[in-house]
Design a protein around this nucleic acid. Structure first.
Lengths: 110, 110
DNA sequence: TCAGTAGTACGACGGGCATCGTACCACATG
DNA sequence: CATGTGGTACGATGCCCGTCGTACTACTGA
């Protein structure tokens, strides 16, 4: 079974903003923006249980923010930058800029 | 008693995104962006009751998105564009652009 | 085969939120 | 004083959401 991803044209602003209004999910997107390397759900330092993690990644995927590629027992997550930029030009950049000003990921664990 | 408005520096991204993730509130902000004239809470065509209206305007105010000036029995609402732009450059513009693409206010009642 | 890893599915819990109705206040106007 | 207008406060309701635990599947490797 393949995972459902909305098409770029179908992305809804409400869903995107809601997805990013949660600190944990904003963290994930921030991290993926800093380092675009696709990586596992568990590879994000989030301090929540696995089931909660699954939930957050699902919200992000269904909002169209990330792409999840099934790879063995893992799912490789990547940011849908191009689709986001195509649908909502400048939105992701503005949010990421605001987020990095707010609580920079690079110094979050320092 | 004066209404509490957060300072520009204190604006939190989570709160802003959450405030704008609600369709009704996004509508209000959209409307204020299209026509910056400060106006009453009741002057927005929202199809919700007065108490719900009060709630939404409070959320917007406490997130720092709007300013409410007490004027007699009314509150004049205006968009805090400058403060938003100062704190989160480009964010409001990007969201408004995305929103107008999504569901243009000017054609909402047409 | 046994153990470990990566993740899902389901159910539950608690809190928050959008919405409403009712009651109430402040001001203007007749 | 009575009425209308603009808005708040409070309580209730129903739903959604973030979080967790438990049980489960699928793959990997000793």
């Amino acid at each position: 079974m393949t995972l459902h991803h909305p098409q770029a044209v179908q992305l809804e602003l409400d869903a995107v903003l809601h997805a990013l209004s949660d600190p944990q999910r904003l963290r994930i997107v921030q991290s993926l923006a800093e380092d675009p390397t696709p990586r596992r759900c568990g590879a994000f330092d989030l301090h929540v249980t696995k089931s909660t993690l699954t939930h957050h990644f699902r919200v992000l995927r269904e909002a169209g923010l990330i792409h999840q590629l099934e790879e063995g027992t893992s799912r490789l997550n990547s940011l849908r930058r191009d689709d986001l930029d195509e649908r909502f030009p400048g939105l992701l950049d503005a949010i990421l800029a605001a987020a990095s000003d707010h609580a920079p990921l690079s110094s979050a664990h320092g």
